[in-house]
Design a protein around this nucleic acid. Sequence first.
DNA 1: ATGAATTACTAATTCGATTTATCAACGAAG
DNA 2: CTTCGTTGATAAATCGAATTAGTAATTCAT
Lengths: 343, 343
Amino acid sequence: MDEITRTKRNRLPSMYDVARLAGVSQTTVSFVVNNVASAAISQETRDRVWAAVHALGWRPNAMARSLRTRHSQTLGLISDEVVTSPYAVRIILGAQEAAWVGQQMLLVVNTSGQCDIEQTALRFMLERRVEGLMYATMYHHEVVPPPELQSVPVILVNCFVADRSLPAIIPDEVQGGYTATEALIQRGHYRIAFINEVIPMPALFGRLEGYRQALANYGLPFDPTLVRSCHSNAHDAFAVAFALLEREDRPTAIFCFNDKMAMGVYDAIKRLGLRIPQDVAVIGFDNLELIAAQLYPPLTTIALPHYEMGRRAVELLQASPAGENVPPTQHYLPCPLVERASI
Amino acid sequence: MDEITRTKRNRLPSMYDVARLAGVSQTTVSFVVNNVASAAISQETRDRVWAAVHALGWRPNAMARSLRTRHSQTLGLISDEVVTSPYAVRIILGAQEAAWVGQQMLLVVNTSGQCDIEQTALRFMLERRVEGLMYATMYHHEVVPPPELQSVPVILVNCFVADRSLPAIIPDEVQGGYTATEALIQRGHYRIAFINEVIPMPALFGRLEGYRQALANYGLPFDPTLVRSCHSNAHDAFAVAFALLEREDRPTAIFCFNDKMAMGVYDAIKRLGLRIPQDVAVIGFDNLELIAAQLYPPLTTIALPHYEMGRRAVELLQASPAGENVPPTQHYLPCPLVERASI
DNA sequence: ATGAATTACTAATTCGATTTATCAACGAAG
DNA sequence: CTTCGTTGATAAATCGAATTAGTAATTCAT
């Protein structure tokens, strides 16, 4: 086995060490290990070089290489709380897997929303000469990123700047709301309640807009009394759903702003002795695996494309010609329907 | 504002550029920006250097520095599925925040359990000369990591090798099981059921052992009919709990192997018209914020110390003298009780 | 047989920093 | 008047690779 031999003052072996052992020049070693097409090296010499490489357990030093080639082969991901959140974390997964196919690695920093950490993270990453930066947020909202961000190609993920001057990858909330509502309509429902979030955010407006568009498209009336809002947690949604379902003209389907709310809605429906989906259909949003799959019956919901956002972000960074900024397009990624058993 | 000026063939400015602008040598710039104590530089010159630095928007090139100093200031984290799982991801957060205070950055790769990815990730990281490696898993189990892992200080997180020859940071499952059971006993329960996982894993044995120790310690009999097992999901736990609660000598408290099970147990209790915690107390394990906080009543549970495991791992790597391996101690971190309202 | 082309390889420079050794100027001490 | 020490700065080597510009030795074409 290639034992890791330490040469010269306990250092890891360098190309020079390999060259000496193989009895060739360092240049030759470089040509051999990089398989340089323009270099003419005999098979015999190649074999000697590889033998020396394995004997010493040599590995290229990425720092030296990057210094010379001026390519760090790394991308940076700065996020507010993505790591903390159970689903937004898939942004990282998508980004990392895409970086992987481009032979790049990901530097990840979670700022926990602190500006000083953000500043320092940015500094560290720029010092490491990242070839692109992603600025990601846990939930879809407007941001004001630090200006130094733009000293390298950058792309916003799950967020955007007010003037849309930076490229962004964001979920298509309108389509998501539309898809959810449409799914209910197609199953014969025409009295569809919508329990929305109260804190103003793109998701709130977008999903409501999608809901209205779907109703309109299928010729159904928009009934304002069927649209309620509360904080997006199970407890508050329970109360709202309970009230909604006690009416004699109760809705036959409830579209919940998110899965946490759906959890409370389930409780309300069960408490009233109603069945899901026979008496009341429920659809959620976010596709929180943990909730949606564990609820009984499993919750049909709309997924946020976190993984895809991460992947697309990296792909766009990679596609943009060396050092060039990514064009400031706003990419809206679809939020697909995830069918389980609640509608 | 420090505009980023590009000098010489569109390159970022180097120390040499700063030196020329300030009318000093590159050495002097290095001494000034690094505040080298042994160097005698007049205040006037220092000011000129800093002025040039800001005028050019110069930033140190971490690759060049690392090459010279032989310190990469980075740590690697290789995980199977940590990024995918909503709670284990806190390992990353803990590691990153600890790395942060040591001025280090984290390279993260999620292998999705694929050996080839693991190999390549390891290679990439070693090429980047990471100063330490963490090998983390989504759930607590035995692993057989690739041997090359040990060419750099390494520590296992949430996993261990059979012969305990590598340092590991793992949750203290026995204490966790003990704490959960004790919490119930202290609230006056003496018929405590335990719904365990079926797939053999350290958590299964450890938590059961903790359960037995607590009963023994408080002089309570161990009743094997109160210990059931099923796959750890809400649906299967529902059935088990239902059966358990239909007995006339039904338990007054249920310790669930994890929070997903608790979700099903809640459903069973409610279906039987019983109240939580008045009629039946429930305690979970894992502290899945999403479930535990959203359930009604909020679930009291035992937390896995993911964040702390990540942090401790990095601290141990940092504490170990340059290049030395971390001593192969197995660090058991406590699983604390998180009190909500279900017991 | 001679110049051209090809083969097989190496010397030297470069990337952008850190660090050691050295140097000039100047005042103080002997 | 030399020597010494201090202050203020620099030249040069180094880290580990990639890369350009060669150079010998051999083969080929004419």
